[in-house]
């Protein structure tokens, strides 16, 4: 077989990166990939010496590759890593990725805590969605996962929670928030999350914020990180799925679209944060506590308690 050459060294190209109009060999791609993650971590000052980092590890490709990258970083920057995996209770899906999470943590000697919706909330996601309908599955699951991750990470003494959001997720979130006219949500969103500061909120960092999803899969394959490329059975019913498909069509036709959406958002992020933080300060409001569970909430009952019908008001 003859081969297509790497745009940098002329060796055998392993991947075409449409958004930069280049073909790269395995060596140049992994170098490029790792340095982009490092630049993101440094630019947004995501990690500090001595910090305890809770890695939100689903066992999917994004969080698993993120775990490997943070582990690599921890060799030169003294940080302590531990992982938290949440078993939502999605039959036929989560059990596969849970195995990956356990195996990769063993391999890297990173302590792992597995928590489940069933233990914490009394029911699996499958059960809840049967009752509530699967239309807003991602929103439900997201509220429950964020709550549990924050609570557990805090109990385990984490300074930060690392989330495996990639550039595709970010571009989707940005467009979804525009489509729903929810700019205040975007003000709280970013490589380092949290326009609201509160001692009960653990800062969330996103080292893969500028890394496209396909690159993450390619890196996993090149590095021999065995990942089950599985699809969440609820993904098709979600609004996010429509936005994902639309963005992928645009990306195919106009390469670089997703990263341009992410960069456009980063340009506007400070303005958004200022606008919404200013509003809260002017009103003299502070984040309160949920009257039911005691977790931080801007309303009398937090989103989770409303979702689980714990709130009677």
């Amino acid at each position: 077989m003859s081969f297509a050459p790497c745009s940098k060294c002329g060796k055998r190209a392993a991947i075409s990166l449409y958004y930069m109009g280049a073909d790269l060999c395995q060596s140049h791609f992994t170098q490029f990939f790792e340095s982009r993650v490092l630049r993101t971590v440094r630019h947004y000052r995501m990690l500090k010496k001595g910090e305890r980092i809770a890695v939100a590890l689903s066992g999917g490709k994004d969080s698993t590759v993120m775990l490997h990258m943070l582990h690599k970083i921890s060799k030169s920057l003294p940080i302590k890593l531990f992982a938290i995996t949440i078993d939502e209770g999605i039959a036929g899906y989560r059990n596969k990725t849970l195995e990956v999470a356990k195996r990769e943590c063993r391999k890297l000697k990173v302590p792992l805590k597995v928590a489940s919706f069933r233990r914490e909330f009394g029911n699996t996601l499958d059960f809840l969605l049967k009752k509530k309908g699967a239309e807003r599955s991602c929103s439900f699951c997201g509220v429950m996962r964020r709550y549990l991750l924050n609570k557990l990470a805090r109990k385990m003494g984490a300074d930060k929670i690392a989330i495996g959001h990639n550039a595709d997720d970010v571009a989707q979130t940005v467009l979804m928030n525009y489509m729903r006219n929810e700019p205040e949500r975007l003000a709280r969103f970013g490589p380092l999350s949290g326009a609201v500061e509160d001692e009960l909120f653990i800062t969330r960092i996103k080292p893969l914020f500028l890394t496209p999803e396909r690159d993450i899969a390619a890196y996993a394959v090149m590095k021999g990180i065995e990942i089950a490329f599985a699809e969440c059975p609820y993904a098709h019913s979600a609004f996010r799925q429509s936005v994902r498909e639309m963005l992928n069509k645009f990306e195919e036709r106009y390469p670089g679209t997703k990263l341009r959406v992410v960069r456009a958002f980063l340009e506007q992020q400070k303005m958004l944060q200022e606008a919404f933080r200013g509003k809260v300060e002017k009103q003299g409001e502070k984040i309160g506590r949920c009257a039911i569970c005691g977790e931080p909430s801007s309303k009398e009952a937090c989103s989770l308690c409303v979702l689980l019908d714990r709130a009677s008001f």
């Binding site: 077989m1 003859s2 081969f3 297509a4 055998r12 190209a13 392993a14 991947i15 075409s16 073909d23 790269l24 395995q26 396909r214 899969a217 390619a218 394959v221 090149m222």
Partner: peptide
Amino acid sequence: LVKVNGKLASDRTP
């Protein structure tokens, strides 16, 4: 992603 003979390959790979 596409593998040709066990290795990831770019679009222009024959």
